[in-house]
């Protein structure tokens, strides 16, 4: 019963008008919650103690780690949406993965830039071609490729199917990024939060990190809903312009 209700609610969202109404209700709350979490997260990021080894540069981690998590989460959301496009043909699935690609590219860029700025004082180098850094750089290039593909094709349904296949093929990179630090000998340190035996970092660093991660995640979902709404509007404008051109042609 609960499952069928969930499926009914999910199917209801196939109607873009209902989806737009839901987004209009949710967005103000999500935006306020995001701003509040960022205020708390930034306060904690700058008031907690520095690390005994990293010193003050540990503060870069409160931006770098959430951005890096989001770069992978955004791609996972796109992969789920790609399945929605290819298997269920959900009308909003391709809107979702098209809208998410620029957001994923932006968060990956933040992860790469802040990682590099942490690497210089801590490792003594801006960049090394180790497995973690290289696989994240490939993820960034994949986001750019998907954005270019979506913009190159005029037919949205064709672009959606092609993008969906590419996204699912590219998803192989996500476990490679996650486990690269275990599978290969990398300069990048291994996981210290998401581990089977629990986090290995002290609570005074973990709390600001988790608050910032939550703030970044909510920021992503807020922007994703806004970008999906924009894409629906863009398609409506296109459809209405085509309809107006047809009507004008008939009158002529």
């Amino acid at each position: 019963m609960t499952e069928s209700l969930a499926i009914t609610k999910f199917s209801d969202l196939a109607n873009p008008t209902r989806f737009l109404a839901l987004v209009a209700r949710l967005l103000p709350w999500m935006a306020c919650l995001t701003a509040g979490l960022f205020a708390v997260g930034l306060y904690l990021s700058f008031t907690t103690e520095g690390d005994y080894q990293q010193g003050e540069t540990v503060r870069i981690m409160y931006v770098h780690v959430p951005a890096a998590w989001l770069s992978m989460m955004c791609y996972s959301v796109m992969a789920l949406s790609a399945i929605g496009t290819l298997v269920w043909r959900h009308p909003l699935a391709d809107v979702s993965h098209k809208a998410a690609a620029p957001l994923g590219a932006a968060f990956t860029l933040i992860a790469l830039a802040t990682g590099s700025l942490w690497g210089k004082p801590m490792w003594g180098t801006w960049w090394v071609w180790d497995a973690r850094l290289t696989s994240v750089f490939i993820l960034f290039l994949m986001y750019l490729g998907l954005i270019a593909l979506n913009r190159a094709l005029d037919d949205p349904s064709r672009a959606a199917r092609l993008s969906a296949v590419l996204i699912l093929v590219g998803f192989v990179n996500i476990p490679i990024i996650k486990f690269s630090v275990d599978w290969w000998n990398t300069l990048h340190q291994p996981a210290s939060v998401v581990r089977l035996d629990g986090p290995t970092i002290a609570p005074e660093f973990l709390v600001p990190l988790l608050v910032m991660a939550l703030a970044f995640t909510l920021l992503f979902f807020t922007l994703h809903l806004m970008a999906m709404r924009n894409e629906i509007w863009r398609r409506r404008v296109g459809a209405q312009r085509r309809m107006a051109a047809r009507m004008a042609g008939r009158e002529a």
Partner: peptide
């Protein structure tokens, strides 16, 4: 270190 921290937060905020 302050330079790297400020630049990191600055770039993230700008993006």
């Amino acid at each position: 270190h302050t330079f790297y921290i400020a630049l990191s937060y600055g770039i993230a905020a700008l993006i």
